[in-house]
Nucleic acid binder design. Structure first.
Lengths: 220, 220
DNA sequence: TTGTGATGACTGACTGACCAGTCACCGAAT
DNA sequence: ATTCGGTGACTGGTCAGTCAGTCATCACAA
């Protein structure tokens, strides 16, 4: 956690430090990030960073937590009305993609933490990311079943897992060099992976998810 | 690439070096891996490692390539008979899971490379991983369509992408601390994520994938 | 208004630890 | 005696974290 000083400096400087730290950690990974370079990018002295945070690890930890909170807010807002599962899936994917475009550094940070025990981030924190989404997806699917708009012979947990898995892949594909190339290759996208192109694929994916969730009706 | 010496040492030692290097890189990440510690784990002197490889980067690069090749062989074997898409999906998931259990270090390595530009691995290499699977999936889906066992109103590329995405998530869930916790949470698995438990979920996922691929037939 | 002292953010040269890569030497095998 | 793999102390560079000192600001007294 930051030292008291960090809350007393100019907000603009505070934002700059967090933003640059997120970028650098995302870009290089924890171990390869140099505190002197970070200080330079922030436009403050190295010593100042150590006035704000206990250590490199402390800073990393806080930047990750901050990123989690931002992404949660970006996707779910503050206590907005609950929706049915089809709307919820669309909301998660759409807002998630926008967040990944605006703040790729936080998504990359998540990937870095997920990739290995490299990060000094504790397991509980690691779970907080998913907790909220997992519960919301499951509840909403169950409600959909009760209302008859979702197939009843469906494994709720697995369905929620698959939806979130695809979300993670799509978001990663906007951010990680490797996943971006992978997406281009599979989807045979020419040139840059534009937000528009990705969103078109997301639209189709959402349709497929809908196909899985919707009750089967006799056809023609 | 390794120096000539590396091909002349005892095969047992060669294997040990590659295995321990893969483990350590997977565990710590590239930057945080210490060559002295690696040497110790391999039971050779640090200087010896530098008799085998040009540099740390050279070793990392080679270990990754080696891992790719191993996983390709583990999943696809050597020119085995082509199967239909349902069998292919099952083969990829089943053998992939076995490989991930036997060699979690290589999967973790893949995740580390995918996570960020952290690794010094070039983009082309990064693509080689997916190339083969992508092509095979797409071709097999197309063949399925021609044979009438796969829905014709399906985006082939997207279907292949989704199948492979789910595969990546499952394999990662056996290997990465974070993804493992995530899977436990979503699927409400108690205790350790056993291979058996994971495989049961994979079976159901394969069923769902089948559901997406199979032509719709009028029901009751 | 000016002088004075206290507070606390800011600074960057410095230290000590760590680590990639080297090299002069060793010893076994031929 | 030559070749070649093995060895680990050593070097030069890097980097997290420190600290002695600076400076801007503010409160208050003269």
């Amino acid at each position: 956690m930051p030292k008291a000083t960090f809350s007393k400096i100019a907000p603009e400087k505070r934002r700059r430090v967090l933003r640059q730290a997120a970028r650098l950690f995302a870009e290089r990974g924890y171990a390869a990030t140099d505190m002197a370079e970070l200080a330079e990018r922030c436009g403050v002295a190295k010593g100042s960073i150590y006035n704000y945070f206990e250590s490199k690890e402390d800073l990393y930890y806080y930047v990750c937590l901050d990123g989690l909170e931002r992404s949660r807010r970006a996707v779910y807002g503050e206590g907005e009305p609950t929706r049915d599962i089809y709307q919820l899936v669309q909301q998660i994917f759409e807002r998630g993609m926008v967040f990944a475009e605006d703040h790729p550094e936080y998504v990359a940070l998540y990937l870095g933490v997920a990739a290995g025990p490299a990060g000094p981030l504790a397991d509980e924190i690691s779970l907080q990311v998913e907790q909220f989404t997992a519960e919301l997806l499951k509840q909403t699917i169950r409600r959909g079943m009760a209302e008859g708009i979702v197939r009843r012979d469906l494994d709720v947990n697995l369905a929620a897992f698959l939806i979130n898995s695809l979300y993670i892949i799509f978001v990663s594909s906007l951010v990680s060099r490797h996943f971006k190339l992978r997406m281009k290759q599979y989807l045979e996208i020419e040139g840059r992976v534009t937000a528009a192109a990705a969103r078109e694929q997301v639209r189709r994916t959402i349709d497929m998810i809908g196909d899985i969730l919707r009750p089967r009706v006799p056809q023609e």
